[in-house]
Amino acid sequence: MTGGFEAFRQWLQALAAGGYLPPSLGYGFAVNALLAGLIAGPMLGFLGTLVVVKRHAFFSEAVGHAALTGVAIGILAGEPYTSPYGSLFGYCLIFGFALNYLRHRTGLSPDTLIGVFLSMSLALGASVLLVLAGRINVHILENVLFGSILTVSGTDITILAIIGLIVVTMTAVFFNRFMLASFNPMLASVRGIPVKVLDYAFVILVTIVTVACVKIIGAVLVGALLVIPAAGARIVSKSLKGFVALSTGFALVATIAGILVPMETDLPVPSGAAIILAAGCLFIACAVLRTLIPSMRGESQ
């Protein structure tokens, strides 16, 4: 798989050298970043439709922000600075599971509970970072938190491709069940859908994509790419088909633009920030289109 990938990368670099692709793709690291983006973008855009359907935007953002603490704990525990995957995955999973568990038992609304957890998690993260500041140069963490195109390796792309395949398959296969379980758990249950299992499965999916996309988009911003493309698609679509297609497309375009534009224009912007800004521009364009074109506002209530 790695050999095939190497050949593909060299082919893209040759095309860039020949003037058929943007010149920045003449660099190996840039091709790596673009390939990672081509996998991560559509995957996040696709899963993001479920985030919006289930009204879990704040939850996904919170899991992304929990990554900050996960990264800090990992480095404190001796994991590598550039890829503290173990603690990142472990902490985000515990965060998501605990939230889900308490949501069913406290009677608090999800936004209140997420607010409590997010604040506690950030406070813990800030404390650990302060301890770390005495030991390492914390600026190294910026790459993990906000994404960097310099750090993506062939192995990262292979892992991302495998996770992408799992997440996209799970999302597609269980799409209807995830949706119905959020609309009416009892109706879903009568239809034989294991509502609680799916609740936790969704937490796992969000956690996996957060961890997988940490290098290219950054731990803090990955939640945004789960929400913004789907939010833009939601306001201009008229059916689920259009919603899913547009969300996936928006996320793909934003990721490619966020990686290529700063390189081509020599902008010193982290890839994660550029990707989210590109997605934000698409969202604003959708909002403006909906305002200007009456037929996009859908049928009257």
Partner: peptide
């Protein structure tokens, strides 16, 4: 049903999600 009223989901989409495991999109 507890769902986002602005969700671009037609009656056909909803019914398809109920009756089949083929993704409703």
């Amino acid at each position: 049903l507890d769902f986002d009223r602005g969700l671009p989901m037609t009656v056909m989409d909803f019914m398809a999600a109920i009756v089949t495991s083929r993704p409703a999109f």
